[in-house]
Computed example of a mutant assay.
Amino acid sequence: MAQRWKPNVTVAAVIERQGRYLLVEEETADGLRLNNPAGHLDPGESPAEGCARETLEETAHRFTPTAVVGIYLARIRQPKDITYLRFAFAGTLGDFEPERALDHGIVRTLWMTVDEIRASTARHRSPLLLQCVEDHLAGKRYPLELVRVDPSMG
């Protein structure tokens, strides 16, 4: 029997303040790339919990998801063929923890305008970065209850 296809489940925070979006610059095999604060969902956590954790690990900011911006499916074929299922959340940016070290590979955080993000697509780690920002800018917000988490996950 062929190996079953399983997409990688990821979470991302779409954080805007005064017309700028919080991004991370990270080291990748392709050089420095830009992305939303994002990462893989860990076992036993809900997508909203994973998003809060990843945002803290990558930006040293607390984050409370308040709405789903979108659920996305994307396929990256180089260097390996991988499909990502991304849950993107808008929310409230909380306290900054300056003593916290950023996740391995994260070089820095930065605030960029939509125009700067649009002009830097060659540096995007994921094609979903811009789509998430565009959807946020268009006002797409869905209740957190859209993503149902069964009690068996806890």
Rank of each mutant, 00 (worst) to 15 (best):
E99Q: 12
R62M: 11
V107P: 05
L32E: 11
H124F: 14
A138G: 07
L41M: 13
R86C: 00
D103T: 12
Y142Q: 12
M112L: 15
I71W: 01
G70M: 06
L41K: 08
P37D: 06
G39V: 02
K6F: 00
C132A: 08
L146E: 13
L73F: 11
G19M: 12
I117H: 00
R33N: 09
L73M: 12
E27V: 15
N36K: 10
T83S: 13
P37R: 05
H61N: 12
A101P: 08
V24A: 09
R33H: 11
T121A: 11
L85G: 03
R118M: 01
V69Y: 04
G44V: 08
R141N: 06
R108C: 03
T66N: 10
T113G: 02
T83L: 08
R62L: 14
G19H: 10
A52G: 12
E134C: 10
S46P: 02
S152I: 06
P127L: 11
A101L: 06
Y72K: 07
V11T: 03
P37H: 07
F96P: 05
R75C: 08
I117R: 00
R77W: 04
A101E: 09
C51I: 11
E57Q: 15
P151Y: 00
T28Y: 04
M153G: 00
L56D: 03
A52Y: 05
V133F: 00
R4E: 02
I71F: 05
R108K: 13
G39K: 04
D115Q: 09
G91H: 06
